[in-house]
Nucleic acid binder design. Structure first.
Lengths: 215, 215, 215, 215
DNA sequence: AATGAATGAGCCTTCATTCAT
DNA sequence: AATGAATGAAGGCTCATTCAT
């Protein structure tokens, strides 16, 4: 009856990760309250009590999934923007942010879905952390858009806040209908096209050499 | 026997409705699995067993909330489109659909949120129904966009399916950040602007000669 | 929405009886704890609260079913014995008791089964009454057997108490396997044969000089 | 590590068995629907959820009690018959079956009562199993009686089916009135006497020429 | 490093019963 | 004479969590 483990099998570190990944999957599929420790443990090939060796509670495990999912997206987008050559025009920067968001979101689909499908119902201590991280991501976009607007790269009839919410909402929403098996490049192009034209002023932005050039 | 009703003496119809509305609220705030009958009953000012006088189970109650939420949006949008004068141009029709969607979504915020926050986790018999209704709504938009595209009212680089998903996703997503206390008219204008420019071809849509030839 | 009743329909008295008969049926089929007021009411074509117009509680209703079932058997057997000509021999009297028991038991199958299947689990105030009535029936048989024994009509190796329990047990047990559609006369003959030979002493009882002369 | 077990430290096996035995007792006393998990758990000295560690549901637990109760009786009677010397005469075989039945029934009184008092109300999946096991036991007796009848060891006026039902019914019925504190040997003798004479033909069974011819 | 055994807390659901009508 | 509406009480079951090992 002893469940001897293959010595060559994943070590401790792997187990913690297996549990985290399993939790992301279950959390995405079932939702917060329906993400049972039993199903997570099954998926991670351990018994439920094993979870408590790595996480102090179910709540903490799920919170880590959500936080990881959120943070990775923000960091990935931030990296992508940082990697752009200095002086890259606003439209391109925004497009790059879209691409990075969709790219990481697709690559970490379970984590991304875990976030988008459960953040609304988060409560307790985890809620604070999620809110902060979310705010950080929005700050990133806020900067992106206000810089663009300052350079006249966004139509003046648009409210930057509202536009930002719609754009991020559209990107996040794609986890619900876009699946990894589809063509991610194409998804990105479409999103970029919609966003670019949705925000772009009547006349193409002058390549930004400054604030406002005179005609 | 007076014509005025004693507000403290709810009738049958009121009770069922109170429970449904309460369920929508709790379902939106807590999520499917955390929508406890106890909280719903408290909100409806009845004792939990009373729910079973009107609904055969918690599951059925919540399913009705979701179905109602979905259906109302679709019917409202369909009505709005039907009310447009024959020959209305495509851009205007799409804008009207956006307006109707956001308008009803704001008016029935709890139901709308109950849907958008829980449809991903629906399972069992309810899932089927939700999927069907959702499909019907997408059919509506599919028709809207393909008719527009056929008349050259949508940029040719756009994939209609993907564009549709992004647009509907963005509209639905607004339940998460737009609150009834804000200015709904402004929200609608912003959404319409984003969608209009996001989809519109380089040159303004030919004035729609569409239906009837010009004199 | 008014459920007007056909004036020619059964009157009050009938309703009470319908409920009682329905209760016997449900009690026999489901058992005490599973005999739900709802099913009884359905069968009696009334709504559950109507039961309270005729009976003070579910408990009382079910108790009346059990008591009625028990009492009718005893009274029927007593009548049958009383109807025998004075001086009837013991074997014949016992056979007559068997016949009467099986006969009424078959005729009131639901009541009889309600009793035999539930008396063991009776508790509370009803238990007392059932026990008393049961005791009265056993007294009847006690008298029957001890009179027979006194006249040498029962084998001396038999313990009258034990024999009585076995005989009554066998008769009652037949409700479980004998159904009204079978041949009741044949059932009675078989039971009489078994009991007669089971109790009879090696040499046929001297006819007590009564009915039949010897060949 | 000592060979003596600490009575206050029940092992797994003990717990499951304690629960089963407790369930038999409660099932016998209260009946199927009134056999509350709480009372069973109390009797087994565990908390109610512990039951679910060993049984998948209350229904399954109770079903196992009933099945065990039925099966043990059949197996015990079958063993007893198998242990008889080849060529044992029919009357003796039938008497041995009666003895074995009453003996095991007394030894496992709670299980036996659980069966006899609840089998009539069994329903659902459990009913099937109970019916099959019951049928197997009746098959055993059917063989016993028809073999006897074939050798002229049973009165020809008896219907074997009906006789079998009365006999088994009488034996089973004794759980209701015979208690372990009474003299089981005496009970068996009485039952055997009743059955023997009830079935025996006018002239003693021809010795069946059984094992060894008389000198 | 991980588990078998067990439990406290809590929820859905059923049901007998009440009461105004 | 009978019912629609509603409820208090109670039970089965699930689940996160603990702890000795």
């Amino acid at each position: 009856m002893t469940t001897t483990r293959d010595p060559s099998a994943p070590t401790t570190v792997d187990t913690r990760d297996r549990i985290l990944v399993a939790a992301a999957n279950v959390l995405a599929r079932r939702g917060f309250a329906e993400a049972k420790l039993r199903e997570i443990a099954d998926l991670a090939a351990v018994r439920p009590p094993a979870v408590y060796y790595y996480f102090s509670s179910r709540e903490e495990l799920l919170a880590e999934v959500l936080h990881t999912g959120q943070q990775r997206v923000r960091l990935h987008v931030a990296s992508a923007l940082a990697a752009l050559p200095a002086g890259t025009d606003h439209e391109t920067r925004i497009a790059a942010a879209c691409a990075a968001h969709l790219s990481i979101q697709t690559a970490m689909a379970d984590f991304a879905r875990a976030v988008s499908r459960n953040i609304a119902h988060a409560h307790g201590p985890a809620h604070e952390q999620l809110h902060r991280e979310s705010e950080a991501y929005h700050d990133l976009w806020r900067g992106l858009l206000s810089a663009a607007a300052a350079d006249g790269a966004i139509r003046t009839d648009l409210d930057l806040s509202t536009a930002r919410m719609f754009v991020i909402g559209a990107l996040n929403g794609s986890t619900e209908w876009f699946h990894g098996t589809d063509d991610t490049e194409r998804l990105i192009e479409q999103a970029q096209a919609l966003v670019r034209h949705g925000l772009r002023p009547p006349r193409p932005t002058r390549p930004h050499r400054s604030t406002k050039g005179s005609p």
